[in-house]
Design a binder for these strands. Structure first.
Lengths: 347, 347
DNA sequence: TTGAAAGCGCTAACAA
DNA sequence: TTGTTAGCGCTTTCAA
C-alpha cells in the first residue's frame, strides 16, 4: 500500500546484470543497439528486481512524456464523456496516454492545474477553457495546444458547425408550422452560445419566424427548470435550448406543471448527450459529433507535436446533425400565446 | 501554438537577477528563506523572462508532484462522474491536482497507462481496475494506492455497503407485496456484483421471496435491452438490476414492448447515476454516495501520502440509500408468471 | 557493442 | 541570507 522500499534504478539493474548503466538504458530505450545476449541478461535482471523505467526521469531529458492532457471545465457535464472517449481512443492509437484534468470553474484553479500539468505533457487540449485568450496563448507557447469549441486566431482549434446545426433546427420547427421560437440562452461567456444565437436570428429572419431569447444562464438542468418558470409567463410554441442539459431541465419543469411536450411546446436541444434519448419525452436535438470532436482535436494536436510545425492549421468545423425524437411536433392550432415581444438585444 | 523557443530555467533567471541558481530555486520553493529584496529582484527577472518552474524536474528530485490520479475503466460510464467530482474537490482542498486516466478496457493498456502515470503522481486511486490483485499490489508498492469498490487484504479500499443497500431494496419490494425477484446480473468479474447477489439471496431467503438471476452481462443499456427480451420469456413482478444503466435499458425495452413499468413490473437499479431521475419512469434505485466515495478515497489516500504510514486503514464501507421513484409500485394482483424456477447457481 | 561521463532543471545539504 | 556542490534517474555523446 505504500512506497518506501525505493524503486530499483538502472544502476541496480546494471550491477545485477554486470553491465554499465548506459547499457541498461539502451536495452529499454533503443533495443537493437545492444547485443541480444546482453539484452537478455539485462531484462532478466530487471524482471528479477522488479525494475520499471521512471518515465519522469526519462522525460526530464527527452522532454517527451507520451502524455497528452485534455482540460475540461466540469467532468460532470455529460457533454465531455464522448469527447474524452474520442480523444482517448485517438491518442491511444498513436501510443499516447490521455490525461483528463477537471479545472473546476475558476480561472485561478485552471491556471494552477495547467501549471502543474503542462510540463508533464507533450500537448494540451483545452475544452471549454475559462481562460482569456491571452492566458491561453501563454499556455500555447509552452506546449502545442488545441482549443475545442472556440476559435482563436493564433491557436489551433476544432469546433462544431453551429450555424449549420442551428439552421437545421429552425427549418425543422418551421416545417412543423412553428412561427415563434424562444431561445434558452447559455452562459454569457460561451463562444458557442454566441454562434448559436446569431445563426438562430439569421435563420429565423429568413424564414420569417419571431425569435427572442432568455437571459444568459448556466447550462444545467436546474437552470433549465428556473428558466421554464419564467418562460411560462410568456410562452411560445417552440423552444431551442443552448444545450441538452438546459432542455431536459426545462422539459422536466413543464411536464411537472402539466404542460404537454411536444403537444403544447416543442423543444430542441443541442449536443445529443447521454440521456437525451431516454428522457421523457426523448429529446429532439442538434447532435454534436462528440467523439469525432475529441479525436479530431487529438490528431490536430499530434500533428503539431510530431512535426515541429509553427504553421497554424485552419480551424476545423465539424458538421452537426439534427436528430428528431419525441420532443417536437406540429405547432398547436391555437398558439399558447400569439403575442410575442420582439427579440430584445441583451444588455 | 508550439513550444520550441526553449523555456527559461532557473539558470537564466539567476543570471538575469545576478544571483545563484539556488537562490532562484528558494524564492519559489521556500519563500521566506530568502531576503525580500532579493526575492523581488528574482521574481522580476522571472516574470521578465516568462519563467515557469518545471514541475517535472522538481518531481525528479523531491519525488512529489502534488498530483493525484484516478484510473477509471471507462470515463463514459456516468457512475464515475460524481466519483471523480468528489475526488477532485477533496484533492483540490488539500492543494492537490487530480488527474483522470481512462485505462480503456484491457489490462494491457491499463498497465501502460499506469507505468506512465505512476512516476508522476503522489498517489493513485483505482476505480474499477481490470488488473489482478497481484498487479494492483505491484502498483501499490510504487505509490500509495486506494482501490474503489473492491476490497483487498493489503491495499487500502473504499467501497459501498452493498449488503445494506441490497437489503433496503428487497425490503422495499417486499413491502409492496412482491414475492418474486429477478436479479439482472452485472459483469462476471465485478466484485460489487458478487456482493449484491449474495446479499440479495440472503435477504430474499429471510423474507421468503423467490429470487433468481440472469446470466452475467456488461453493465450497459444495450445489455439491459437484451436481457429484457429474455426476461419476458419468464417474467417476475419485480426486478433488481446490477446498476442503473442496465435498469434503464431494461426499462426502455419493456416500455417499447408495451409493458407497463411499474404497473406490470417494478424495477430497482443501483447507484443513482445521472439520468436515473429523468428517465421514464424515473428510476427507484439504491443510491451510491458517489461524491463521498471519491472524496473518501482521496482522504484515505492523502493520509498515506503525507504520513508515511505503512499501516493499512480498515476498508471503508459507505452507506447506500434507497431512493424511491416511479419505477416501483405494488405487485399486480395476478402475477405475470407465478411459477418461477428456483435460483440456479451460476456455472 | 559497450563503458565513462556529462548533463536535463531543480532541490538540498553544507559552507561561507 | 546566499553560494557551492552534489545528486534525482535517465539519455546520449564520445571513446574504447
Amino acid at each position: 500500500m505504500s512506497d518506501e522500499p525505493r524503486q530499483p534504478t538502472i544502476y541496480d539493474v546494471a550491477r545485477a546484470a554486470g553491465v554499465a548503466p548506459s547499457t541498461v538504458s539502451r536495452t529499454f530505450s533503443r533495443p537493437g543497439r545492444v547485443n541480444a545476449d546482453t539484452a537478455a541478461r539485462v531484462r532478466a535482471a530487471a524482471d528479477e528486481l522488479g525494475y520499471r523505467a521512471n518515465a519522469i526521469a526519462r522525460a526530464l531529458h527527452s522532454g517527451k512524456t507520451q502524455l497528452l492532457a485534455i482540460a475540461v471545465a466540469d467532468v460532470t457535464n455529460p457533454f465531455f464523456f464522448d469527447v474524452i472517449r474520442g480523444a482517448e481512443t485517438a491518442a491511444s492509437e498513436e501510443g499516447y496516454t490521455m490525461l483528463v484534468a477537471d479545472v473546476q470553474e475558476s480561472p485561478v484553479s485552471e491556471r494552477r492545474a495547467l501549471d502543474r500539468i503542462l510540463p508533464l505533457v507533450d500537448g494540451l487540449i483545452l475544452a471549454t477553457s475559462r481562460l482569456s485568450d491571452s492566458a491561453i496563448r501563454v499556455a500555447a507557447k509552452q506546449r502545442p495546444t488545441v482549443v475545442l469549441n472556440r476559435v482563436m486566431s493564433d491557436v489551433a482549434s476544432v469546433a462544431t458547425d453551429n450555424s449549420g446545426g442551428t439552421r437545421h433546427a429552425v427549418e425543422h420547427l418551421a416545417s412543423l408550422g412553428h412561427r415563434q421560437i424562444t431561445y434558452l440562452a447559455g452562459p454569457e461567456a460561451s463562444w458557442a452560445d454566441g454562434m448559436r444565437w446569431r445563426a438562430l436570428r439569421e435563420a429565423c429572419h429568413r424564414l420569417e419566424i419571431t425569435v427572442r431569447r432568455t437571459p444568459p444562464s448556466a447550462p444545467t438542468r436546474e437552470e433549465g427548470r428556473r428558466v421554464a418558470a419564467r418562460f411560462l409567463e410568456n410562452p411560445t410554441t417552440a423552444v431551442i435550448a443552448y444545450n441538452d442539459l438546459l432542455a431536459i431541465g426545462f422539459g422536466q419543469e413543464l411536464t411537472e406543471r402539466g404542460i404537454d411536450i411536444p403537444g403544447a411546446v416543442s423543444v430542441v436541444g443541442f449536443d445529443d448527450i447521454f440521456g437525451a434519448d431516454f428522457c421523457n419525452p426523448p429529446l429532439t436535438t442538434v447532435a454534436s459529433p462528440l467523439r469525432a470532436l475529441g479525436a479530431h482535436a487529438v490528431r490536430t494536436l499530434l500533428r503539431q507535436v510530431t512535426t515541429h510545425t509553427p504553421r497554424l492549421p485552419p480551424p476545423a468545423k465539424l458538421p452537426m446533425k439534427l436528430v428528431v425524437r419525441g420532443s417536437t411536433t406540429t405547432a398547436p392550432a391555437r398558439p399558447t400565446d400569439p403575442v410575442l415581444p420582439p427579440a430584445a438585444p441583451r444588455p
